[in-house]
Design a protein around this nucleic acid. Structure first.
Lengths: 224, 224
DNA sequence: TAGCTTATCAGGGATTTCCCTGATTTTTGC
DNA sequence: GCAAAAATCAGGGAAATCCCTGATAAGCTA
């Protein structure tokens, strides 16, 4: 099967992250690789991992100290990680904000009033390098469609983070399984399981399995 | 099996309704019976059907003609359908709005910054006839506890589960620290650290530290 | 005051993880 | 079809965790 579109979600409301994560994961072509509520977490994730599409909540009022501005995040991501397509996801769908966010480098705009199919659609369109504005909003802003003009296609490379087998091991680790338990479950030897653990610890640059699971959990690698 | 708690959701953002519907449906005791974006749809549903809990987004800016006020909806529901427990679900978690909505007859308040487990918890508490305010918000309003006194039955404290010392240990564990490392950091013996770990593993009913961290992380006990 | 929780400390031993050294086979990408 | 990545397997030994048995002291509360 072809590689899935790797999607990261920046949004300060946890329940929204949780919901979107599930809804988008229903689509076979999409893989939710992470989600967080601060821009810094996004940057540090993007430094190490490949992400195709970033869903960005424009207004992050932020629990953290400094107030983060969604437009700024968008243009920073656009400059620093040009391969990442940004889709703005917002409750505000007025002309001014849509224009600003598209100028800041977003390739898509989806109102939160729209359902998840709109978001799925926007992601797929963005992935092909085109721009998209959700039906709801574009109806409202039909004079603004000049903004939807061609953009340069970007390159892509980088590698996957955890392999499928590693992810299987990871999930069982998070359930409290020992290497021996996992070996039985997956019909491989304990040694192999240990190798997978070791490799993941190295990849994630963490000290041990406990931190690995904390790391993976906070980035949404572990289902539950 | 006992009957499920029938939950209706009033919320003007479709994607949020979709997400919440799934997230809450994962719980065996909860049944999502409906959801809509206007108050009128709620009323007509309540006229014909039994609903135990109504999740109410306080500010419905509303695509529909007349602007609907969440506080008004709350008090209308409270008077007209006294058996329906209203839980306010909002992005605004300031003292003023919390107080107003509780006075308008809500039995629970959950910030959208909280995850779905908080909503699940609030629903179950509400169903038993008690009042509840989410951790996030009650932390924020802790100086205003005078006004919360008597108004709420369950101010779920974080200490409900792990003690402060245990949480300190937990945070360091999630950073990959060994018992020895933690002992140095906290100026206690390795043995004591081990006891804290053991106690947490027992409390959380998990198999080992790895699962403990996965458990804690998914419930937001670990900052980062 | 009696009982509960929290926080501290400890020995001994079984089990597990971690770390170093390797290796072969299978799958996948170009 | 070749090279790279992923998946498999292995020994040996140090370190850490896990599991059982305890204990003491402080603080809260009914």
């Amino acid at each position: 099967m072809p590689e899935k579109i790797k999607v990261y979600h920046l949004e300060d409301y946890k329940i929204m992250r949780e919901g979107v994560k599930f809804l988008l994961s229903k689509d076979d072509e999409i893989e939710m690789v992470g989600g967080s509520k601060t821009a810094d977490e996004v940057y540090s994730y993007l430094d190490k991992n490949k992400v195709d599409v970033l869903i960005l909540d424009i207004y992050l009022d932020g629990l953290d100290v400094k107030t983060v501005d969604g437009f700024e995040v968008c243009s920073t991501v656009h400059k620093k990680y040009p391969d990442v397509k940004v889709i703005a996801h917002s409750v505000y769908d007025d002309a001014d904000r849509v224009a600003r966010i598209m100028n800041a480098g977003a390739v898509g705009f989806v109102s939160k009033k729209s359902g998840y199919e709109e978001l799925v659609h926007a992601i797929k369109v963005a992935y092909t390098g085109k721009k998209y504005i959700c039906i709801e909003t574009s109806k409202k802003l039909k004079n603004l469609n000049e903004f939807l003009e061609g953009m340069v296609d970007t390159l892509r490379s980088e590698n996957e983070f955890f392999s499928n087998r590693e992810k299987e091991v990871l999930e069982l680790l998070a359930k409290g399984y020992s290497s021996k338990d996992i070996a039985k479950e997956l019909f491989i030897t304990e040694r192999t399981v240990e190798t997978h653990r070791k490799n993941m610890v190295e990849k994630a640059k963490v000290k041990n399995t406990v931190e690995l699971v904390a790391y993976a959990s906070s980035r949404g690698f572990i289902k539950s």
